[in-house]
């Protein structure tokens, strides 16, 4: 299994990967709370970016409404915990099932009726907006005034109930991110991954080779939705509050996909590289603007937008393929 996973990765790439993992594992001993919080955001973005990448990067289906799966996952686990005392790891099962079912409904409607491209993207936005407004009126989970998880001072980390300090959340998020990478790596090297890429490249040609494109697109959206819902559970228990206006908002969906696109869409490391760059950039910008006393609301986002503009104009394939090519870190396809 391990041997198969490492198949085809050049030695230099492996060394870098091992080094990166070591640094990430050791980080909590060195880093202060601020750095740890930023790293949690990086890993969270890398994880959700990877989940989205399954759909767009691998199978070529552009979803602009992935916030719906974060929201459904977060609300499902939080509601089970608050109303019935169900532990988040059990709630996770329900969360993943609900989000995957929602993905299946969207996928079934769109793919059965041949809705694709821009139309599919807008359908996904519509569903996310639908959920946002729906949850705004859903009293059982607090409607528009928000849904809160009980916060108390914990003397020790309670992993089973996901109550604890940032270090615990950091390791949980790191484990999730590593798992997502491993899953995606194995999938890309198996039949399903090749079939997804065939669909992404040319759906008509894919069908002529016997690929049931409807079925494989359904696999992609269900898997992607389920993976994203896990992030939603993490989000709910890490931040302890959920507002429909925030979790389902279209800007959440957009933030989620900027990482993989900047990093390199359809690549395994694109989401991580993109998350590192964007989060790093955003934090650095904050520091710089504060130092220059330019810290008016909006200034950060303007620079953010300008950086995006520069990256997308200069490196259309994303940053990672370019860097990897320069350093000779990867084989032909990772």
């Amino acid at each position: 299994m391990i041997a198969r996973m490492l198949d085809g990765v050049p030695g230099r790439g492996l060394a870098v990967l091992a080094g990166l993992l070591a640094v990430l594992l050791a980080a909590p001993w060195v880093a202060n709370d601020y750095v740890l919080t930023v790293l949690i955001i990086v890993l969270y973005s890398a994880y959700t970016g990877q989940a989205w990448n399954v759909m767009m990067g691998f199978a070529g289906q552009l979803s602009l409404g992935h916030a719906i799966y974060v929201g459904l996952g977060g609300y499902a686990a939080a509601a089970l915990y608050v109303h019935f005392g169900v532990a988040p790891w059990l709630g996770l099962v329900a969360a993943v099932a609900i989000a995957a079912a929602c993905g299946a409904v969207i996928g079934f409607l769109a793919f059965r009726f041949g809705v694709g491209g821009v139309y599919f993207a807008i359908l996904t936005i519509a569903f996310a907006e639908f959920a946002r407004i729906g949850f705004d009126h859903f009293r059982w989970v607090g409607a528009s005034s928000g849904f809160f998880l009980p916060v108390a001072n914990y003397t020790r980390n309670d992993l089973w109930n996901l109550r604890g300090d940032p270090t615990m959340f950091y390791y949980v998020m790191l484990a999730l991110t590593v798992a997502a990478f491993a899953i995606c790596h194995v999938l890309l090297k198996s039949r399903i991954g090749y079939y997804w890429q065939a669909i992404r490249e040319d759906e008509v040609a894919a069908r002529s080779l016997g690929i049931d494109t409807f079925r494989y697109k359904m696999y992609a959206i269900v898997l992607s939705a389920g993976m994203t819902a896990v992030a939603g559970v993490f989000f709910a228990f890490y931040y302890n509050n959920l507002f429909p206006e925030q979790v389902f908002h279209i800007s959440r969906s957009i933030e989620m996909i900027l990482g993989p696109i900047i990093g390199g869409i359809g690549t395994l490391f694109g989401p991580l590289v993109g998350a590192l760059l964007l989060t790093g950039l955003s934090e650095a910008m904050q520091e710089l603007l504060t130092a220059l006393r330019l810290d008016v609301p909006g200034a950060k986002q303007v620079f953010y937008g300008l950086c995006l503009l520069v990256v997308v104009m200069a490196l259309p394939g994303g940053v990672w393929p370019w860097v990897a090519g320069k350093l000779g870190l990867t084989g032909p396809r990772s």
């Binding site: 090749y194 079939y195 890429q197 065939a198 040319d202 894919a206 080779l209 016997g210 032909p332 396809r333």
Partner: peptide, 19 residues
């Protein structure tokens, strides 16, 4: 012709072979 443009020649054929 409709090759899968971004994939290698080998992967193009591999996808057929996987049927």
């Amino acid at each position: 012709v409709r090759p899968f443009p971004a994939l290698s020649v080998e992967d193009n054929v591999l996808i057929g072979a996987m049927l």
